[in-house]
């Protein structure tokens, strides 16, 4: 009898470790840049939704509904293979991927910000106004700092989702973890081992981020008593 191949053989995974870790690094970098952009965009859209100008409110509402409703895969294909081709622009994969991820997440985050802002006690606004602060300053110095504390947990979840979503960026050629895993799985004909390992790396990232978020959350709640807002959103 010839020596049978081992059932599970992770040697090719170990020897490809530098490529896989590089892919993982690119995935994490894409998710991080995208979530930072999404925070900025999401905040702008949330403020538009709470604006006194009707047009801005409507625009923000449609923006949120659209980006929350569209699947990332469809959006990315539309941007990269539809819009870019129709407009005749040559989009590099990484910026296109990050931009798409940021737009999608900003839709979700704007809702998070909105509910965070609305969760702040009305009395705070009134007190600010009574002290002669402008609407803008009330928002900037009173509401947003408090709202930000409330939205830490949902923000963390969004970051976790963004990390998982980076796997889809492989279809436009971003050299992230999934793309590297696909290439290596085909090369060594070991799909089970490579995809299992990729899955475990994503699990690792998710666990680390979730842990980090709960540490931050604990630190913040140690500094402040529970407000009605934190109670309302922690459900």
């Amino acid at each position: 009898m010839t020596s049978a191949e081992p059932f599970f053989d992770f040697t090719s995974v170990w020897s490809s470790m530098p490529m896989l870790l590089k892919g993982f690094g690119i995935a994490m970098a894409c998710a991080t840049v995208a979530i930072i952009l999404a925070i900025i965009l999401g905040l702008i859209v949330a403020l538009m939704r709470l604006s006194r100008i009707k047009f801005l409110r409507w625009f923000a509402f449609i923006y949120t509904q659209f980006f929350r409703g569209i699947p990332l895969y469809v959006l990315i294909i539309w941007v990269y293979f539809g819009l870019a081709i129709a407009a005749g622009v040559n989009l590099p994969a990484i910026p296109a991927g990050i931009l798409t991820l940021a737009l999608l997440n900003s839709g979700y985050l704007s809702e998070t910000f909105r509910s965070g802002i609305l969760a702040i006690n009305k009395g705070q606004v009134e007190a600010g106004t009574a002290l002669g602060l402008s609407r803008r300053n009330v928002m900037r110095h009173i509401i947003l700092p408090q709202a930000f504390r409330v939205i830490i947990p949902p923000l963390g979840n969004q970051y976790v989702d963004a990390i998982k979503d980076t796997a889809i960026l492989s279809i436009i050629g971003v050299p992230e973890l999934m793309r590297e895993s696909k290439a290596l799985a085909n090369l060594y004909y070991r799909p089970f081992e490579f995809y299992t390992f990729a899955g475990l790396l994503y699990l690792f990232a998710v666990l680390v981020v979730s842990r980090g978020i709960s540490v931050v959350e604990k630190k913040l709640s140690a500094h402040s008593a529970q407000t009605p807002a934190t109670i309302a959103l922690s459900k």
Binding site: A185, P191, Y202
Partner: peptide
């Protein structure tokens, strides 16, 4: 629960279609 929630669907799809089926 934690494991399957953390693995992207995209990876899961490849894991099932190529990985599980071959193994």
């Amino acid at each position: 629960t934690q494991l399957f929630r953390s693995i992207p669907l995209f990876v899961m799809l490849f894991w099932v279609y190529y990985g599980l089926s071959l193994k």
